[in-house]
């Protein structure tokens, strides 16, 4: 480990300890008064998350979580991931237990890993979509297939900011997934200190046919 990384590591771990204890704070900041909620693909979320996430937590690197690890938990691009770690049988869906790690992230000694941050802490019933694996066996084999995940690095010109390849539905909060030590290594941004992500990155959904501009008369 390089010296600078070590220092950063300590900072991040220190931060993690703090946020693990402070996790009971309500996550999404209150909307500014009189501004309706939920427009622009919940664009407000990015600003709130940016505001409340210390820079150190956005810049930490870990590198353990790769795209392969990421997709191994999914059934198609965009499906809700399974819970990869042990969940006690007695777990009965208590949101706070999930959010204490996945609300703001941080290092978990038991997993020896940084916890990925949920992009949608406003949904409280986590086990509604995320379930653990109690067995590896299948009831019956499946003939399920899905498409390749979108390729990375689809800049339109050399070095231009790549467009957002996925739909923003339930995944509007860029900072949650693309920054910090638990971010997937291949898609982590190096410039977490710039908080207005969609200033440069615009959606161009990789799985939708590309429509070129044509005049309609």
């Amino acid at each position: 480990m390089k010296e600078a990384d070590k220092i950063l590591g300590k900072v991040v771990t220190g931060f993690a300890a703090i946020c693990l204890t402070g996790a009971l704070l309500t996550l999404p900041a209150d909307a500014a008064p009189d501004i309706p909620q939920g427009f622009d693909s919940d664009g407000e979320k990015i600003f709130n998350r940016f505001d409340e996430t210390p820079l150190a937590a956005m810049t930490g690197t870990d590198g353990k979580r790769t795209l392969d690890v990421y997709y191994e938990l999914r059934q198609y691009p965009g499906s809700p991931p399974r819970v990869p770690h042990d969940v006690p049988l007695s777990f009965s869906g208590d949101t706070m237990k999930c959010l204490s790690c996945h609300g703001r992230g941080g290092y978990d000694v038991n997993q020896n890993a940084y916890a990925p941050v949920t992009p949608h802490p406003e949904y409280e019933s986590c086990a509604q979509c995320h379930v653990p694996r109690r067995t590896e066996e299948l009831f019956v084999e499946t003939e399920w297939q899905s498409i390749e995940p979108p390729r990375l690095g689809r800049s339109e010109m050399g070095g231009s900011p790549p467009p957002i390849p996925h739909s923003l539905q339930i995944r509007e909060d860029c900072i949650a997934c693309h920054t910090g030590p638990a971010a997937v290594a291949e898609i982590r941004v190096e410039h977490g200190s710039r908080g207005n992500c969609r200033q440069c990155h615009v959606p161009m959904i990789a799985t939708e046919p590309r429509k070129e501009f044509t005049r309609n008369n």
């Binding site: 690890v69 191994e72 059934q75 297939q145």
Partner: peptide, 18 residues
Amino acid sequence: PGISFAGWQKQEDASGNI
């Protein structure tokens, strides 16, 4: 680790569009 066995089998000849 590093070999992709992603959670699903890949559809052959898919356009990539949905």
